[in-house]
């Protein structure tokens, strides 16, 4: 099992890499568009500010490479958000436009601190190979202050003062709002499922 993790200077590359290595995968770190385009499967990690991440992707010439990538692609945390059209983060930041809809800030709620930081239960909306074998009420570790639109791409949700699209899918592209690399057995199962998707 070989997987390429995009090392573009705005992701928690090491923790994703280690989680994949714990599963026995061969991990390549890449930022060169040609190398990325040839990957067997691709993970787009992301932490920090969406505008900074998009600047990095564009500076490295990776935005089109990701859009044209034909095999399994998984965006993690900010990497999931980047798949959508635009975000409120930084005012109005255009993103990769691979899934329709706009990412918005979590609404203020006196009872719920922001960022949404901690373990929340997943509720699976529809069967998908990425979610194969997960228990009902699987727990996952979230850290985010912006939330993806809850639309047709959502395949699993968490609840944090409203629906939080926790796993999304559009064709060969998946996203996890939570951190599978830090979500214990739930996360390990999802990463293993991703590694086993037909490439």
């Amino acid at each position: 099992m070989t997987v390429t993790v995009l090392a573009y200077g705005a992701g928690n590359v090491a923790s994703v890499q280690f989680a994949l290595e714990r599963l026995g995968a061969t991990v390549r770190l890449a930022s060169d568009p040609t190398e990325v385009a040839e990957a067997e499967r691709l993970i787009l990690p992301g932490v920090g500010h969406a505008a900074y991440a998009m600047d990095r992707l564009r500076a490295l010439g990776l935005a089109e490479t990701i859009a044209g990538f034909p095999r399994p692609l998984l965006g993690v945390c900010l990497g999931q958000q980047l798949l959508f059209e635009a975000t409120d983060e930084g005012g109005n930041t255009p993103m990769l436009r691979l899934i329709p809809g706009r990412v918005r800030s979590l609404p203020p709620n006196p009872a719920l601190p922001v960022p949404h930081m901690g373990w929340s239960k997943l509720s699976i909306d529809r069967d998908d190979p990425l979610l194969e074998g997960l228990e009902t009420d699987a727990w996952a570790y979230f850290v985010h202050a912006f939330v993806c639109p809850d639309g047709g791409a959502t395949i699993a949700r968490a609840d944090y003062g409203g629906p939080v699209p926790a796993v999304v899918r559009s064709r060969n592209r998946w996203g996890c709002q939570f951190h599978p690399e830090r979500s214990s057995q739930t996360g390990a199962r999802i990463l293993r499922n991703f590694l086993e998707l037909p490439a």
Binding site: A14, E21, R22, H179
Partner: peptide, 11 residues
């Protein structure tokens, strides 16, 4: 830090 990161699957 790296040694701990390899070991843990929690934050």
């Amino acid at each position: 830090v790296r040694d701990i990161a390899r070991l843990l699957d929690i934050p």
